[in-house]
Structures are given as C-alpha cells and as structure tokens.
Design a protein around this nucleic acid. Structure first.
Lengths: 236, 236
DNA sequence: AACCGTATAATTGTATACAATTATTCATTT
DNA sequence: AAATGAATAATTGTATACAATTATACGGTT
C-alpha cells in the first residue's frame, strides 16, 4: 500500500493507522479497556499488520493503549489516580515553559496570544452548545503557543503527549460545567497579563493555580460520572 | 526466531534488539550521528528486520535515535542545549517525586536509602579507577528508589527515560572530576537527612541544588571535550 | 571540469507467509 | 456437575518477499 490521505495531508500507512486509531480513542469510539485485535483492526483499516503494529506500538508508548500480560493490547483504562498524576506533571512542566516564554515573548507573540484570549472570550459569551468545542480548542492553542514560545523541545514534546492523554478526561467536563469554562478563560487572560508585564513568578503562579483548578474540575466530573451510572467508559 | 537470552532474562527478539542497541548507544559503541542501516544491523544481530524496526522505533521515540527527512535513522546527536533541557525537566520532576517520597517514606525505606548513601561514600573513599562506575550506579539507584517511593508512575516513567538520555552525557564526567563525585555523594546524604526529618520543602530545595550542580558539571565537561579535540563523539 | 539526466544500486515501507504462543472447546474421568 | 487434559482455534511474534523511495554512479553535453 502506498501513501494515504489523512485529513489534508499525505501520510505513510503507519502514520495513517496511528492517527486514525488515536482519533478513535480520543473521541471515545474505542472505549477504555476495549481489547484490540490486530487482524480485526488491519482488515477494518484495509492495511496489513506490519504498519498497524508499528502504530499500535507508538500508541502503547504514549499510553493510550496498554499491553496485558498475555501480550494482547487494550485501550488504556482511565482512573482518577491517573488524571491526578497527569495534571501534576503538567503543572510542573507548564511552570517551566511559562517562565521561559515570559523571557522570550515579543510584541508579535503578545498580539497573537491576546487574540487567542479574545476568541475564547467571544466563544464563551455566545451561549451555543457546539461552541464549547471551540473553547477547548483555542484554550489548547493558548497553551501550545506558550510551549513553542519557550523553545524547549524536550518539555514541549512531553507536554503534547500529556495533553493527548488528558484530552480523554477533558471530554467529560464541558457538558456539565459552564462556569468552569468562563473561569478558565479569565485565568488565561490573567496569565497573559502577567507575561506581558514580564512578571515571571506571577505568571508561573497563575499557571499553577489555573492547572490546579482544571484538575479539580476534572476530578469532580469523573467522580460524578463514576457515581451516577458507572458509564465512565462511554460518557456521550 | 524464538526467545533470546539477554543477560540473565529471556526476552523477545524485539526486546533483545532494543536492549542491545540501546546498550551500544549508551556505551558509545554506536556514536552520535552515526547512521543506522536496518539490513546491516539485522544481519549483525542475526534477526529479521521486522522486530529490529520495532526496536528502532522505540529508540526513536526515546530520542536515542532520530529519523532524518529522508526517512533514515541515525544515532541521536548530543548538544549542550539538549543536556540543559534534560536537566531542567529532571529538576522539576524530581522535585515532585522527592516531595511525595518524603510524605510516604517508612523506616524500612530510610534504612535502605541510608545504606545506599553509605555504599556510595565507601566507593568514593576507596580511590580506585573502576570504582567510579559503582558510584554512578548506586547514585542512580538512590534517585530511582525515590522515584518508586513516590508511587507516581507517570513521572517515574518520564524520569527513567530522561536518565537514559542523560547517561550519555554523564559518561563524559567522572574521568576528570573526582571532586564533583565526592560533593554529589554528600548532597545525596543531605537530601536523605531532610527527607528523614520530614522537611519536604528542604528536601525539594536540596534536590534542586543537587541537580543544578550536576548540570553545571556536565556542561563544563562537554564544553571541555568540544574545545580540546572536538572528539565529542567518542570520548573514550 | 561543471552540469544534467538516466540507469543502477541501496534502503526503507508494506504485505504476506509461517512459527510460536495463548485461549477455547469438548470429550473423558471422577 | 467439576475437573482434567488433549485437540482445535485464535492471536501474536518473526521471517521473508516484494514495492516504493531515495541515493549513487556514470555517461553525455556544454
């Protein structure tokens, strides 16, 4: 099999499989603890097992799938313990990047980040259902912009992976917690204000608070799901 | 090919390739920027390309090998910029684990860590050449014990990978800096003292200082190598 | 000699075939 | 019925074959 189209970009068969499976896990189509059978997946994606296995291995490495003792794979489970760990690491690493980014920020960066914050606020004000996805999207962009600004490739890479895993939990939140989104948007603005002033310590502290609040919200959402119907696996 | 022996444990062909290649990179047998040709390596290790590729992909993920734009792999280069980033991330993450470990430490853990510190001091005092490897080994054990004590799997995994990458730089140090090793051993003892007292903030601060000192030493060693003979690739 | 393009070789990417392992079924015994 | 174990099926692990891509060599042209 030659190259395949995924979205608007040409990718190898391996990367196609990686992106497609990851996307299905993120969207919840492949649910936590669901077993993964190579033959079944390869016929479904119409590829051979060789590139599929390489894609699965990468996902295993990123801990979106896990290998069991018998060598078989399953979609990674989710747990409160995990989400706490993820946010804690993220908190420490985002502290690094926001500090470095504050040192390096230019006027152009300020305008762009300011613009992102505006877009988030706009989305937050217009009270439509499907705008929520936008808020999450641009909120994520705000953070990743800071990652790149820091120019710290090591941390950047780790944070992107953590965010992929966190995304599975984040899906559970917006549908029930509008206030948190509004608050989160305000926190983004606050962080940017401090960065613009060059207040490094302040920006770090604001980021820490922001992430701690996000964690609290995520934990509450998960607990609620687990207690109400136990259907943590397929919240939609 | 069935299972293979590696050291004292039976492992799959893929894992054998992974461990063997990683080991060669660590020891400097495979030198930075050296190109990796699958066919050549597979015949050398007497395995097929399939498990070899999976091993290489894992190493790529761990950034011990890097893929070039033409799709070919090479042993990852080393740079001062990288070692700075590695130590900075490590500093932040070890702050997490030493704090959590201080909360969870038991009397048994204290005895074991104390023992490790003793062993390191013993090695440091006896002034033989090949003892240096021991100091590095037990020094590493001191840190990994703390990782495990924290029971934070997410951070633990990231730190182990960072340490693999850092090890390539650490090799450059001991042969020229005996005082740093002595100092490092003392810092380990100091960290443990504070952990035993339950002084969480103090332990974190001591760990930060310890890692910053290690970084400074590593950077100096690398700079010296780069300036003297440029033979950064094969220091031995 | 420098440049260009084509033929050839080297290398990686993917598919398929086969081996080894693990799970399941089902008859047999108690 | 429960337990045991052999036969069978399902699944993963590895090797090999082939396709696609990229690099190299080489001859001709200017």
């Amino acid at each position: 099999m030659g190259n395949t189209q995924y979205g608007d970009k040409r990718v190898s068969t391996k990367d196609y499989a990686y992106l497609e499976i990851k996307n299905r896990i993120m969207k919840g189509e492949l649910i936590p603890d669901e077993s993964i059978v190579e033959e079944r997946l390869s016929t479904e994606l119409v590829i051979s097992r060789t590139p599929l296995r390489e894609a699965l291995q990468r996902l295993e490495y990123e801990e979106l799938v896990v290998r069991q003792h018998n060598g078989r794979l399953k979609v990674a489970p989710i747990s409160i313990q995990e989400v706490k760990e993820l946010f804690e690491v993220r908190k420490q690493l985002e502290s690094i990047v926001v500090a470095q980014a504050t040192d390096k920020i230019t006027e152009l960066d300020k305008r762009r980040l300011r613009n992102l914050v505006q877009v988030i606020k706009k989305s937050d004000d217009t009270d439509e259902e499907d705008i929520l996805a936008d808020i999450l999207y641009y909120g994520g962009k705000f953070h990743t912009y800071i990652y790149e600004l820091s120019a710290n490739k090591t941390v950047n890479k780790i944070l992107l992976q953590l965010n992929d895993r966190i995304f599975r939990y984040r899906r559970l939140i917006p549908f029930e917690n509008k206030e948190r989104l509004t608050q989160s948007a305000a926190e983004h603005k606050h962080i940017l204000d401090l960065m613009e002033k060059g207040d490094k310590a302040g920006a770090v502290e604001a980021m820490v608070v922001h992430i701690e609040n996000s964690l609290e919200c995520a934990v509450n959402a998960i607990k609620r799901y687990m207690h109400t119907d136990g259907e943590i696996n397929n919240p939609k």
